[in-house]
Amino acid sequence: MRQIRNVFFTFFAAPLILIMLTTSGAFSLTSKVSPDYIPVNSLYHGSQVVVSGEAAPDEEVIIKFSSPAKKADLHKKGKGGGLLWMNVGELEFKPVSDVYLLYSSQNIAGIVSVEQQDEYALGYDAFRRMLEVSPVSSEEEKEMWVKEFIRFKEKNKIYGVFTGKIETQTENNIKTYSLKVDWPYQAPPQEYTVSVYAVKNNTIQDHRESSLKMEKVGALNFISNMAFNKAPFYGVISILIAIAAGFIVSVIFKGGGGSH
């Protein structure tokens, strides 16, 4: 009897359980970020980052790049004296990420519930709902400055929401996904979080987080450290080098006499 039970489990039940798991969303989402370390040297001009992995065949994939939330203080422009455009004050935005790049296989609003958009900060609508702007006098004014904030960041290529850039392929009941991102050189060196979400039935089924570290290296790192940790020395050395450069060029040119 036990033998019959073992044979049944090996040939029927186990494969059945496996099939049920893979088709019911319990499939284990995987993600890999390559490279996960970007050395920033003096010749750095951006990089290409590939995020790839596997998901269940009936799941949509969302990929988000973000950095730790903080506050941002910016000048706001308006009409000074009712006539001339100029800086008319400051605005504080919080919580905001230095970089916010979101990629999804379909429009976020169509595949994730509003509650989960807010919970996982997915999409500009969620961004608008959770962002605090001060000082503002009304909701309309807040809405206007949030739009401006997004436009300001998008112009620097460090904010963006994109649909359809993730390449997928389904084979043997497994969906493989791949996203190639031109990582912007405007993104400041720090550690970023790459979040991958598997979505089905308007619900996030699973998610994975990886890190992408950008770090200053070599001479660039040396100069940066000196500027912040040995500021007086850095100031004096910079001035001396500038003066020396001026003299050297003067000597090279060997300007003759005379006047205008």
């Binding site: 100069i223 500027a227 500021a231 100031g235 001035i239 080098i241 001026g246």
Partner: peptide, 24 residues
């Protein structure tokens, strides 16, 4: 330049040198 480097840490030496190559 000294005050900016010392107080605000805003002097970018590489930027200044590259500008200098042209300006001198």
């Amino acid at each position: 330049s000294f005050l900016q480097a010392y107080v605000n840490h805003t002097v970018d030496f590489i930027l200044a040198v590259l500008l200098l190559v042209g300006s001198t």
